[in-house]
Amino acid sequence: MPLTREEVAGIADYARIALTDAELDEMTTYMNEAVELLEPIRQYDLEGVEPTFHPIGDLSNVMSDDVPDTSVRALPIDVALENAGASRDRSFRVPSILGDQGGDR
């Protein structure tokens, strides 16, 4: 069953990418072509085959000692804010999160 334009619009909403009507048409065509390319994956009988999520099999969580690492990796606040679109008082600045209520003043 091919993906419909409405379904693709739903995915765009979920992916937080505002597509124009024209883009939505092209994207629908692309998505259906791309999904067709993936068809070989569905032809396998994979009963009993373990998945490989990562080429290095024995990865485990890396825990650091609980001491501040300010000398090396922690970015100074001014460097961390340097690339932000908007900042104020040592913070990133964003528009209202909850619609009309509680907007930035």
């Binding site: 961390a80 690339n83 932000a84 679109g85 908007a86 990133f92 964003v94 999160i97 009309d100 907007g103």
Partner: peptide
């Protein structure tokens, strides 16, 4: 569009931005 990268100007909500 918050911490770095292109930020659309003039948006009224974070989701729109």
């Amino acid at each position: 569009g918050v911490r770095y990268g292109y930020q659309e100007p003039g948006c009224s909500t974070l989701a729109e931005q």
